[in-house]
Each structure stands twice: as structure tokens, then as C-alpha cells.
Design a binder for these strands. Structure first.
Lengths: 342, 342
DNA sequence: TTGTAGGCGTTATCAC
DNA sequence: GTGATAACGCCTACAA
């Protein structure tokens, strides 16, 4: 593990027979002060030969800009799909030559303080505050003084920019898919948890029904305590036991859809022939493993990560130019669990 | 987004009526050069009042140590469980006051070069090179000169330190669980993919059988082309169609176990009464959603991330003191899919 | 068109 | 005990 010293701007200057300042100007293409083409070329050539790369720390110290963003999250990458958000953020940052730090707090205030302390020490330029499930959260005030951008979350107070899934549109597009297949008796197996997704998806469901003149029947909406496969099983079982059995079910998430599959199986119902199902989350590991594969709605994790980073970088570079993205749409992923009503 | 300037060591010096050097000595408790207690206290008090935090960039520039680690991965956080590795790494780093950068290459050589370039620019002290699935990989030579540590991977050449799951032990512990429940006719639904897990788990399976005097029957090992639920379904179906039907199946992973559940269900077999199943990966989202919940083997993702970081930091701080961890054990997660042989 | 000099915030080495 | 002073690598007036 030999540590060979990297060449500095001065090494290039010596080799080229010019001053360090000239090297800096040449390499950075500073407008205003022009450098003779011959000099520039020579400098560039020598820099390449020496394998020169600027020392980002020195640059950052001097310019007071570290080109570094931090993504802070309570439970980083704990939710399987949350990795996509990080990935979107990281790739967007990398595209601009920026760096992403990651810090997870595990929910402990003390750890969070330590992480925010690190944000300051390392002169991070901006912060993406992300949540694994779309929630409304408090922003620690210790972060004041840095651009903070929320991803997959909304703030309780303060005017923070944020990007999160459009739950209403998500509920709409899922329901719409079922309506387009001819279904009118559409159940909604949901959760009673107090999160934006619950109200939003329900509203989207109702809007879609309304738009097509289908009467909303509250008895077709089941809200279970939680949102596990077991809850989906119970909800679906109860819906499918009605004398007028729904021909389609929209499930709050893929886990619940997995439970619905089991309920249907036990009752001898074939998907999608006897029952159509749409899930939510596009957890590929479930959606693709189910048989038939599950049609579902994909949350825009990658996009949220990327948009958050793009917005912060734009803000940092040009000032307040861009627009607060807010709610962004979800995509329907069509697979095999929706059938035309016979 | 107001950016208030952080106080520097000089601000404290001015306020305390001492020199910056004294402040540095006092705050860092440098042994050798002693500072009057009164001075130290005064300096500490003022530092606290001003909310002083050292500028990590300046420190790093001066000391040539950034206290920063990068985790480079082809497909960061793409595999659901891979997030745990990142999390283990991040938390271990944070515990020592270090910072984790993350960079994903998406498999593209060009992106990888850019990321490695960033590693150098930002004076990263060490690199964790991680893979999402235990594989044997090439380390880019551009990383030479930095401590590189492999997590969930082994290197094709060069003597890199690494940490990866003990596949043999994993296969052993899974099979052992079934043997302990009284089973002797134990199938193994595996994959034909050329990865260390395939050979390792098979060997563990054989070792366990041997240890308990159970004859190894190659016909009980089915290797499907891939390792999806569909493959598990096929493999299990074929095993369960034998005239002497196995009473237990060890599945290469949880997705395949999910397929095995479906095969069992279609053949009217109840788990765990008629058939016991053990999976691999502990993908909670599947293992907990299945009914009955799946007993499986958990890969030590969190531990691998943490151990990699601990090792790199130890190496950086004390020189070559610690031991190369190599293969580390997996944990059996007992749930409900294994029953005593009646 | 290029070089000089000062400074970003720290730390290390000397003197005093 | 404490304080100048000189680095670390880079940027940027300003001077030449």
C-alpha cells in the first residue's frame, strides 16, 4: 500500500518553467486573463504526463466551496427501494463532479447531532434530508445556514424545498388501470396508518371512480391496522367474502398485494381471470416473484434523489433559479395481474 | 438559506487575547507542549461560546489525512439488502468520526474512472470496494496507492484484504437445521450460476449430511439455470414429484423458496407439516411475507460493511496490526417453515 | 501574457 | 507557557 505523492501545481510549474499562478490560470481556463496558447498547451501536456489532479481540499479551502453534498437519513438504505434514492442522488452528483457523503442517524438524536457536526466540519455545501417513507418531518435547526432539500418527505415548518411522490396521482393511475380494463366493482385494501400515502391514494382512487361515473362505495375500502402481507390477506379476504364480490382490488402496497394473492388462492380465485390486482411500490423482488407477476405503481425514488441533487447544485451555482419540484408523478408498471373484465 | 460564517481558530485567538497557535495547542490537548490551565479553560470557554468547530478541510490539508473513506460499488444499493452493507460501513465510520463517501459506477468503465478520479481529488484516505453479490472481481489499478479493502467480494489477483460470507458454513447451518428437525431426505434446490455461493453452499450441505451419516444423493440436488422464484418453483416441483418425495428442501435463496412454496401449495403439501423449507438471504420482505414465515440464513451484510471500515481505519491509524477477516459466518434466522419430522 | 504575493484555516517547529 | 512563522495546495488581485 505505497502512498506515492501526487504532483502539485508547483511541480507542473517547475517542469514547464512557468509560475504556479500561470499553471492555475491555464488549467482553469480563467476568462479575463488570457494565456498564450503555446503556454497553455505545454502546461496541459505536462499536467497530463504527471497525472496531475487538483487537490480538492485545497481548492475547497480556498474557494469556500467543497462540491460536496450530504444525504442525511434516519434509516439509510433500510427500506429496500430507498437505495434507489441514494443512487439517483449519487449519480446526479457525480455527473456534475460533485461528491455525496452519506450519514444515517438511526433515529437517535445524539447520532444526528454528530452527523450534523460532521456536515459542518467538512464544509459540506448542501444537504439532502431524505426519508425512507414519505412522511412529514422536523428539520433539525442545527442545519440552518446550509441549503437543505427534502427528498421523499415534507417539512412540518419552515419553507424547505422538497420533492415527494404525488400520492393522489398514484392512487389515480392504479385505479384507472383497473377501470380501463372494464372493472367497476373495485376494492381498495389500504392501511389506517397516519401517513400522507393513505389519504392521497384514497383520494386518487375516488377521483378516478368519479371521473368514470362509478359510485364510490365506502364498504369497498378496507383499512387494516398496518400494511403487511397479513393485513393485505385479511382485507382482501373480507372484500372477497362479500356477496357481491369485487372483480378487482387495488392494494396499498405490494406486500399487501402478496397477501391478497394468498387470499384469492385460498378462495379458488384465479388472477387475473377472476380477480385483477394492482399493487404499489414496485418492489421488484415481490412483484416479479409473484405468479402472475404483479402490476403495480413505482415510486419515483431514483428521480427524487436526482432532482434533489440537481436542485441543490443549481441553487448553489446560480442562486434561486429553479422551481421547487414538490409532488412528482409515479409510473404504472404493467405486468400480468390485471385482466379485462369478462 | 443564509450562510453565516463559522468562527475560525483566529477568532478565538483574538477574543482570548492569545495567538492562534496557542488555541490550537489548547484545543487539541497536544501533549509535550503544556498550556496553562487558565489559558486552556479560557480558550475552551470562548470556543464553546462562539460555537467553534474545526474546519476539516484545513485540517486535512495540513495533516494530509482527510478522515474520509469511499465505498465504491458497481451497483450501489441496487440489491435490497446491500443497503445494510453501506449502513454498517457508515455507522462504523461515524463512530470514529470518519466520513463515508459513496460512489457507484453502474458497471461503466468510464464512470468508474471518474469516480476514482474523485477519490484522488478529495484525498480520500481509504477505499471499500464492495459488490452486491459475493463475487470475484478485478480491482482497478488506478486505485493503487490507497488502502483498498474488499467487502462481499474476493479479488482475482493482488493481495487485497477482504471480507465475504462463509458460503460453506451457510450451507451447513441451513442443512443442519433440517437434520436437527429429524429430516434425512433433504433436497437442495440450487442454481447453476458460476458464483462462489453455488459451490460453497453445496459443500456445506454435503458436509452436514456426512456428519450425520446421511448418504448424499445427487438426484436430490437440482441446479436451475437462474435463481428466480420461477427457478425455485421448477426445482421444487421436480423434487416433490419424485416417488420418494423429500420431506425438506434447502433453497439457494429466498426467491427460490418463494417458488418452492408455490409448488408445494399446488401439490397440496402443507408447510411445515408436510414439507420443511429453509431459504437463504433473509430478504425480510419475502421471508416475513410468506405464510408460514420463512426460516432462512442471513448474510452478514452489516457486519461486512462495519468490519471493512474498522479494518481500514485500524490500518490507517496503527499500521498493519489487524487480521484479514476473510470468510465470516452467516446467521440462521428461525421462523416457521421448519417442522419436526412426524 | 505572465509572475508576485497574500490568504483560506490548520498544525508543527522553533524561538522567546 | 506562549507566540511568531512557515508550511499544506490552491486561487486571485495586482503588478510587471
Amino acid at each position: 500500500m505505497n502512498v506515492r505523492q501526487r504532483p502539485s501545481i508547483r511541480d507542473i510549474a517547475d517542469a514547464a518553467g512557468v509560475s504556479p499562478a500561470t499553471v492555475s490560470l491555464a488549467l482553469n481556463n480563467v476568462r479575463g486573463a488570457r494565456i498564450a496558447d503555446a503556454t497553455r498547451l505545454k502546461v496541459e501536456k505536462i499536467a497530463a504526463e504527471l497525472g496531475y489532479a487538483p487537490n480538492g481540499l485545497a481548492q475547497a479551502l480556498r474557494t469556500n466551496r467543497s462540491h460536496t453534498l450530504a444525504i442525511i437519513s434516519e434509516e439509510i438504505a433500510t427500506a429496500p427501494y430507498a437505495g434507489r434514492l441514494i443512487r439517483g442522488a449519487q449519480e446526479a452528483a457525480s455527473k456534475h463532479g460533485w461528491i455525496m457523503l452519506i450519514m444515517s442517524t438511526g433515529g437517535a438524536k445524539e447520532v444526528e447531532e454528530r452527523e450534523i457536526e460532521a456536515v459542518w466540519r467538512h464544509q459540506v455545501d448542501g444537504v439532502i434530508y431524505a426519508d425512507t417513507a414519505h412522511r412529514i418531518i422536523d428539520i433539525p435547526e442545527a442545519l440552518e445556514g446550509k441549503p437543505v432539500f427534502l427528498a421523499n418527505a415534507e417539512a412540518t415548518h419552515g419553507d424547505f424545498w422538497s420533492v415527494y411522490p404525488d400520492e393522489i396521482q398514484g392512487g389515480y393511475v392504479a385505479t384507472r388501470e383497473l377501470i380501463d380494463a372494464g372493472h367497476e366493482e373495485i376494492g381498495f385494501v389500504s392501511t389506517a396508518m397516519d401517513i400522507p400515502a393513505r389519504a392521497g391514494r384514497l383520494q386518487g382512487y375516488r377521483t378516478a371512480l368519479e371521473e368514470f361515473g362509478i359510485r364510490f362505495d365506502p364498504r369497498l375500502v378496507i383499512e387494516e391496522a398496518s400494511s403487511f402481507a397479513e393485513d393485505g390477506y385479511r382485507g382482501a379476504h373480507s372484500l372477497l367474502s362479500r356477496k357481491k364480490r369485487p372483480t378487482a382490488i387495488f392494494c396499498f402496497n405490494d406486500r399487501m398485494a402478496m397477501g391478497a394473492y394468498r387470499a384469492a388462492g385460498e378462495m379458488g380465485l384465479l388472477i387475473p381471470k377472476d380477480l385483477s390486482v394492482v399493487g404499489f411500490d414496485n418492489q421488484e423482488i415481490i412483484a416479479e416473484a409473484l405468479s402472475p407477476q404483479l402490476t403495480t405503481v413505482a415510486l419515483p425514488y431514483y428521480e427524487m434523489g436526482a432532482m434533489a441533487v440537481e436542485a441543490v447544485i443549481a441553487e448553489l451555482q446560480n442562486g434561486n433559479t429553479s422551481k421547487n419540484p414538490g409532488a412528482i408523478p409515479n409510473a404504472l408498471i404493467k405486468r400480468e395481474s390485471v385482466g379485462l373484465l369478462q
